[in-house]
Design a binder for these strands. Structure first.
Lengths: 143, 143
DNA sequence: CTTAATGCAAAATCTTTGCATGAAC
DNA sequence: GTTCATGCAAAGATTTTGCATTAAG
């Protein structure tokens, strides 16, 4: 506690670049993909810094994190209206924010009933979007 | 398809041991922990086999899998009444099966509204159980 | 000037794969 | 006798950490 309102860390071009690149992305992005995009964009930033920045952003609630089927962390800039859940297309990666009020309420109820404290929840929906389902180009069994 | 009803693979002592050990566990267990338990129990089985067996069990729906906060895969023998969700205590690892009918229905509705196909969902609840919350013995920040 | 961020390389984890041996059918 | 499972060791992958350099306050 030194006096600053919130977000205690030091502004740097790298951090700005990471957040901006993440905001520019439509869906969820991995640290590695983000780093590649930045590099391709001419921005020189270390992979390490990308990882560190994403962790900070997640900790400060500025981004959402989910895990893909391999356990890889995927990040997305949070739309500024708080907690959100997404429906990801397994084929094309399309992400849709879904209304989860019902689930939120359910989670609170579960916390109350079970007597657990500080209950947090992670919810990941995956499927095949109508578009991909229509023109099934692959033939992939599970990926 | 060779004629067998279901569960196409070959019965071996190792596979039996893994499934039995998993069943004996109360909560969720990682492959490594399970392997350690088996070894401690005098059962000689390779870590590789544990991994492979758990994947088979998951694929055939005999076990549930969640991921802890580090992305590590945790397995649990499925109680025989299908799809389940759990509430895990971050302190002691206690796992509670929670009734998720509401969420199941919600997921189906989301699938319908969005036009997605084969929608699957992963839901993980974590918190601090009343017991741990009462007698906060540690002071651990995250592990 | 002091404190913190960067970035490279190396480490640490969990998980999967190659290949020879042994078990199951 | 053929086919599949096992297990060791090595590879693969993602993410974190050590440490000197450089930038920010």
């Amino acid at each position: 506690m030194h006096g600053t309102t919130l977000g205690e860390w030091r502004p740097t071009p790298q951090r700005a670049a990471v957040l901006q690149a993440l905001t520019a992305c439509d869906g969820f992005t991995s640290a590695q993909t983000l780093h590649a995009a930045l590099t391709a964009d001419g921005v020189v930033v270390g992979l390490t810094t990308v990882y560190r920045t994403l962790r900070l952003l997640e900790a400060s609630g500025q981004v959402d994190m989910v895990r893909d089927s391999d356990g890889e962390r995927l990040y997305r800039h949070r739309p500024a209206d708080g907690h959100r859940h997404y429906l990801l297309c397994r084929r094309c990666g399309l992400s849709l924010a879904v209304d989860s009020e019902e689930v939120e309420r359910w989670a609170v109820e579960v916390a109350r009933v079970t007597g657990f404290h500080d209950v947090d929840h992670t919810l990941e929906l995956t499927g095949v979007c109508d578009n991909c389902h229509a023109g099934r180009d692959g033939g992939r069994t599970d990926a």
